[in-house]
Amino acid sequence: MSELTGKERVKKLFKREPLDVMPCFSGQGAVVVQAIEKMGTQFAKIHTDARLMAESAITSARLFNMDGVVIPYDMAVVAEAMGRGISLYEDTEGIIYPTVPNKWKTLDEIDIPKDYMTRGRLPMVDEAFKIIKEEAPDLAVGAWVLGPFTLAGQIMELDILLKGLKKHKEQIANFLDEVTTITIDMCKHYEDLGVDFINVREMGSGTDLLSPRMWKTLIGPNLTKVFDSITKVPSVNHICGSTDMIIEMMHGCGADALSVDQKNNIVETRKKLGNDVLLFGNFDPYNTLTQLENVKDVENVIKECIDNGIDSVWPGCDIWPDIKQENMEAYVKTVREYGKKPSPAVGRL
């Protein structure tokens, strides 16, 4: 039997069908400097040009034999489309992701344009998806969106939002309702573009910031609405930071898979959720791929993720693009070799 393509492997994973080997892909940014250098471009330029975005994603995946790609790379796309501006750092040396310079400072100022979907870089991102689908039909194509709370923190000042959760509960709850519809619209839009999976990153909602009680009342219900709305493609519920206290509630939101970072105790999570749940994660991408001096140490990190009960080894956050080539190779190689055995939720052919 011939080997599965990356796209086939990822699709089967989400259906929990037996696989030849564990897929190697991510729902977080996975563009690497080796690809950018090969293309002869710069990091600051791949966020604004559909061809450069698509090509850098495909080249990054091809260089390291990954099963899929995920775009866009920065979390400012929707806020920019709402008129909050964009800082691209084009004249700055090195790698800096675009950010939002002008967040709304009060709830009263917020005025979300109806046509935001056609503004800023969103049409360019659509074009990049089109290019990837045409030019890399063998790769799984992932889109990601910010969860409602994290998106709210991108369009208004985070400290005002956080304090508002306690001080102005009703107004903030209404605002989060409104932002939830935007996250849903983005998901539906990406579904219509024909992506293979959608990763919803509610990364600002771990218990490093919010109490489990607050999560239960203000985060969980909105995420449930988002996952209820994603009906055509598989979805992932990703939260970074501390998730041990909320993992069962995350599971209750209804995504097809959960993704967590290195702070999660996967062994315990498995015990809590059982073996049927798809679980992705959970290595520290910065330390593992850019800092470790010995590829044996990288192998051990990846093996530990698999031994603890992960179904697909995902970085806990965006891969810091300036990876060590040998570390990235060791990551993929270990997933392929050590991931030949079945994972808790997915068997092998």
């Binding site: 304090k163 910031l209 919010l210």
Partner: peptide, 14 residues
């Protein structure tokens, strides 16, 4: 001790 989280701490700081 996980009794307060960041929103409470920000308000205490205020």
């Amino acid at each position: 001790t996980n009794e307060y989280f960041v929103p409470e701490v920000l308000m205490c700081a205020d």
